[in-house]
Design a protein around this nucleic acid. Structure first.
Lengths: 193, 193
DNA sequence: TCTCTTCTTGAATGTTCGTTCAAGATACGC
DNA sequence: GCGTATCTTGAACGAACATTCAAGAAGAGA
């Protein structure tokens, strides 16, 4: 026996970055080779093909984001404060990173959309999971009496997610902190109102 | 002398559709030939290359959308009603069309982003124009006493646009009329509140 | 009707792409 | 320390790509 020499998570995160910056179609195997340090043969051995690498990268992205999300709600602060912090982090990401630091899920969703129903389904499922997780947080906020019982948590989660999508796209044309922060502020206010 | 045989607007709208459905990178010249009915030579003669065709298509898209926008505000109804109608139309587009009927501008913005600063600039400028046009409508609504003078029209325009971006992305995973209409409803309410 | 000019056509070009595979390298079991 | 199973390497492959161009088709002017 002999085990593989590369760190799978590291490779997948490099691939994620490559896909996020150039998009799936424009990222060539040569780009992936440069990004991951793996030779084509190894990539094909480990992930079957370019599409398999994208699938694995999407799964890694899901795990990373899930861990990140849960970290935001692990403390003892009021749930709504955690939600605001989470939103502020989205804004910070939009500003700080190189301009193309979008979410891999939405980036891939926009690009692949109709052409690959399986990937489309995976992405939709992932985003639905995030939506579900958000809805649970809104339920939690209601139980903390920080949010009116009248509110529909599912609707709030959808609206919140819609806002995040919008923010990310908006950031492409207006990467100015002040403007994005103001938008996030209103989004949060409208949800808590 | 002999004039060209094809209808430039028709060709550009066909190209627009092709680019919107498959994205720029994935749309091959063969696809464009099929979509436009033009042979490669003619395309290169008229638009220099594939990128030139995208530029021309973007310009045509801008003109079409500008005309569409102005039509929504040509009547004598209150401006806010027109805005709501405009928003409802966005939602209707998200639902009715084949799932990939996004906005060419945002689609291209998401895909090309960093790789072509000239196209990035053109798209940003176009979206800024729409934002500016929206801000003027909010100003108009204020003068009609339908909106508080306290409100910042520029901010409202940005928030409205953010919502539209978000709606379009959201529609990719939830193409259900009821959900999208509910989101649009709240967006409108939050802006007018 | 003939000629000139311009447009149209689609096969050919060189390049780049995703993918394969056989040869070489390396760690593990004995 | 040897044999072997497995991983790594990178050259090679056909396919598909954007682009070119020379030959053919067709309107305009006489």
């Amino acid at each position: 026996m002999r085990s593989a020499e590369f760190d799978k998570e590291k490779v997948l995160r490099s691939a994620m970055n490559a896909f996020m910056h150039k998009g799936y179609a424009k990222t060539s195997m040569q780009d992936l080779k440069k990004a991951t340090g793996l030779h084509p043969g190894s990539i094909y051995c480990a992930f079957e093909n370019k599409r398999g690498l994208l699938l694995a990268a999407l799964e890694q992205y899901r795990l990373d984001r899930k861990a990140e999300f849960e970290q935001y709600f692990s403390g003892t602060q009021p749930t709504l404060d955690n939600l605001k912090a989470y939103l502020d982090n989205v804004v910070a990401e939009c500003i700080s990173c190189d301009s193309a630091q979008a979410c891999l899920l939405t980036k891939a969703l926009n690009e692949i959309s109709d052409q690959d129903t399986e990937i489309q389904q995976i992405i939709s499922d992932n985003l639905s999971m995030l939506q579900q997780a958000l809805a649970e947080k809104f339920e939690l906020a209601k139980s903390e009496k920080a949010l009116s019982e009248q509110k529909d948590s599912d609707h709030l989660a959808r609206y919140f997610l819609m806002g995040i999508y919008g923010l990310r796209t908006f950031a492409h044309t207006h990467p100015e902190a002040k403007v994005l922060e103001q938008l996030a502020e209103q989004l949060y206010a409208d949800i808590c109102a």
